[in-house]
Design a protein around this nucleic acid. Structure first.
Lengths: 144, 144
DNA sequence: CGCGAAATTGAAAACGATTTTCAGAAAAAT
DNA sequence: ATTTTTCTGAAAATCGTTTTCAATTTCGCG
């Protein structure tokens, strides 16, 4: 299903309202498919829509996370980031500690091993996070 | 090598000073082998050493992380946690989202798969974090 | 349509964790 | 012992996030 439709349905069923701000934020968020912090998205929006406030961006990103349009991530730089979910498989991240590049990857075998680890400890897994931190190819090449 | 020795050596080589507060904090930190937030360790220390300030605990935990005595972790509850490193293998965590229980596990096969993923993307891995979130056995049993 | 209840907005204030400041105290060097 | 340097603790500053509140907008209903 279309993301915008999904968002509207979510708003409807929660008794929330469709506003121009929410649609603008959704569109901008989906268009540039990267890992936004609230601040970054706010600044990007501000160039074209200077009236949209920081609080609205923040609240709207939370909404996206609630309805499954976005996932909240934290890569240890002290601010939350949101990335669009397009219904694809769960994925994890490679993060370059030098330039901030973020790559995504999937590794079903790792997922399976996680399940068996959890089972061994009688845990029921809801979700997980896996991040690999290091240097990307170009930063490793330029390394001092 | 003994952790206290290691800490003293680190202080020496950095031109820092050995103080009674630092030694007390180190001892308390190592003794109770769990995942402290700054707040928690501060509160625990305060019962026996009411004169030690929050800022000192915070600064000392950062020092531990710097010299490799502790690792800083973040389990998404909004505060940093520190755990002692005893030179053992790297381990990852199972976190119960209900009661906050934290279990540690090691899974060399996952580590290997991570290496191959990184290699496939020309990344050089410095470190990683893997956390599995869900319900522990007893919380799952009591589930509403 | 247009009214009215209910939700939303943006600016500013509040918040919680972390970090810094600063004057006095303590530790190491001389 | 004296000097220099670092450390401490309390309080203030900072940073990202969240809430408050009055004014505005949306939307169901007549």
């Amino acid at each position: 299903m279309d993301q915008v439709q999904l968002f509207n349905d979510y708003l409807r069923c929660k008794g929330l309202k469709t506003t121009s701000q929410r649609l603008i934020i959704l569109e901008t968020f989906l268009d540039s498919d990267c890992h936004f912090s609230t601040e970054e998205l706010y600044l990007k929006l501000r160039t074209e829509y200077p009236k949209i406030g920081y609080a609205t961006v923040h609240r709207t990103l939370k909404l996206f996370a609630e309805c499954g349009i976005a996932a909240e991530r934290n890569f240890g730089d002290g601010q939350a980031r949101y990335e669009p979910i397009h219904g694809e498989e769960h994925h994890d991240h490679l993060v370059c500690t030098e330039c901030g590049l973020i790559l995504e990857f999937e590794e079903p075998q790792i997922e399976k091993l996680q399940e068996s680890v959890a089972a061994a400890h009688n845990f029921t897994i809801d979700n997980h996070r896996l991040e690999l931190y290091g240097l990307c190819a170009s930063c490793a090449a330029t390394a001092n």
